[in-house]
Amino acid sequence: MPHPPEELTLTPQPEHTFPPLSGAERATPRHSAPPASPPRASVWQSRRWWRQFLLVLASLPMLLFILLPLLALLLRVTPAELLDNLLNPMAAQAIQLSISTTLTTLVITIIGGTPLAYLLARRRFRGHTLLDTLIDLPIVLPPAVAGIALLVAFGRRGLLGSWLDIFGIHLAFTPIAVVLAQTFVAAPFYIKSASVAFAGVDRELEQSAALDGAGPLAIFRYITVPLTLPALFGGAVMTWARALGEFGATIIFAGNFPGRTQTMPLAIYLGFELDLQVALALALVLLVLSFGILFIVKGLLHQRVEAIRVS
């Protein structure tokens, strides 16, 4: 029996749900009851209490550090102010643009990232590690570097941009530039997650489907994807969340124009300079939106993992 995932992470490793069939029995229960030896039970209990206490105490500073700024943001804006500022056209435009660009980014990432993740997971070739590392790079790069890199690639005098310019295509300062910036910095989250999941699928299942006459696409559609769905979903959500918060690459590569390239993070930054209340309201919306979606997705993922475990 697969051991239960102790804590569901956003991008669950496949072995949580599908341990290798030949794997040794590693599933040592972590929350099992104390050894039943009645005379010592109370000592054990008190030690356990003490350990719990120390653990909570040690966790507290980091927890408070993360919660305090979020709480401060929440307390700073009254509901009336929030509503008032959200009706501000700058805020409404920014929310609309953020939603449309991040969803586009998500679709592009899934369409373009899935084959790449599959390639990385299933094929061994010269330069595999190099490619794998290169894909990680946008995750660790400062977004400003990403913005400059995009500018020298797709900008008007850029590597590819100078060719596009001949055909009168200008990417900078358009919503396309926003999507490019978001995809560049956010797609690796999905690709990594999908690649790890694809690598973890039990090949015997795919092989038996092939023996039954299923073609490669059918195997992918009916075996690989369903088995990796939680990880694909988790990766997609991370990509979406990262795209929603994208700021540095966007302001450098796409510029800032209300309704065209001014996404929520940009509106928050410029709002901070113009009117702190609008910025606070937008920041709160971003916070609630991100939290809500991450929370729902975690819940869905959990259900899904539970369902697979039960079946």
């Binding site: 500018l151 900008g155 008007r156 005098r157 900078a172 300062f173 302001i251 450098i252 796409a254 510029g255 800032n256 124009f257 209300p258 390239t261 930054y269 410029l270 300079e273």
Partner: peptide, 21 residues
Amino acid sequence: NVVSYEADVKSVLTKVALGEA
């Protein structure tokens, strides 16, 4: 004709110096 309202004057300068604007 405005394509971008930049966050500070140096960004305006850079965008023009790079030939983006």
